[in-house]
Amino acid sequence: MAAEARGIQRWSGWLFVSPWLLGLALLFVYPFVASLIWSFSEYDLLTSPRYIGTDHYERIASEIVQGKGFGKALWNTFYYAAVSIPLSTIMAICLAVMLNWQVRGQAIFRTLFYLPSMVPMVATSILWLWLLDPRDGMVNGLLSFFYEAPPLWFQGIQEGVSTSSPFQFGSKDGLTLMSLWGVGNFMLIYLAALGDIDGSLYQAAELDGAGSFQKFRHITLPMLSPIIFFNLILGIIQSVQAFTQVYLVSEGTGQPAESSLLISLQLFLAAFRDLEMGYASAIAWVLFVFLALMTWGLFRSSRNWVHYRGVRI
C-alpha cells in the first residue's frame, strides 16, 4: 500500500506542478534564452533579429564612460538608491521602535502608519506631483519661509545631496520623498523582528545599568542586523526595478534633462519607444549580472556585520 502510494506520488507530483512547469518554459526559459541571443542582435520587432556581435555591449560600455544614455540612467539609479535606502532604513527602524511602545491605541497607530503604503502607486504619484509642484504645491508653500528660491522637485535637475547644489531638491529627491512616505512594508518587517527579540536581554542590560540608547545600540541594532541586511538587498532590487512612479512623474520621458531617467525607464524607452530590442536586451543582461554580483558581494561582506542570534559568523 505504502509503495503504491509512493508510486502514485511520483507522477502526480509532476502533474500538480505542471502549471508552473509550463510557466517556467514559456515565461522564463524561452525569454531568458531569447533575450541573451537578441542582446547580440539588431532587432526592431518588425524584421527578424540579425546577429551583430557585441556592438550593444560596447555601446553600453562607452555610455557608462561618457555618462550619457545607460551611463546617465545608472548614475540616477545609484543616486536614488544611495539616498533613499539609508533614509528609509533609518526611518523604518525608528517607526517600528515607536510602534513597539506599549501605549494605548497601539493597534490604531500601526494602521495609521501603514495606510500610505496601501495607496496605489499611480495615486501616490498624482498626489505628490501636486504636493511638490514648484509654484502651487503645499510643500513649497511651507518651504518658501526658508528658501529664497524653493526647490523645483520634479521639474528640476538638481540633486539635493551634493556639493554643487545642497538642499536644492530635484526630481530624484522627489522620488525619494515618495518612497519614504510608503515605507510601511519595511516598517512592518522590522516591527515583527522587534517582537522576536528576547525580553530577558533587555532585563539583563538594565541590571548592568544600561540606558535606553545603550540598549538600542547594543541589543536592538545587532538583533535587527539580519533584517537590515535582508531589507538592504530588497531595497537595491526595488531601486533598480522602480518604474511606475518614475514613469508617472516624468510623463514617461525621464525629464527634465533625463534627471529622473532611472534604469527601468531607460530600458523601457529603448525597447518600446526606440524599438531597439537588441540594445534593451543587452541592458537587461548587464543589469542582471550587476545585481547578481552585488548580491553576492553583500552576502560576502555581511559576515562582518550581520549577527545571527547575536553571534558573529
Partner: peptide
C-alpha cells in the same frame, strides 16, 4: 530550487521576449 531562482531574476530580462511571445 529552480523556482526560488526565478524569483531572483529581474523582470527586465524576460520582459521583451514575453511581449513578443
Amino acid at each position: 530550487a529552480i523556482m526560488i531562482g526565478t524569483m531572483l531574476l529581474p523582470w527586465h530580462v524576460t520582459m521583451i521576449p514575453r511581449f513578443v511571445l
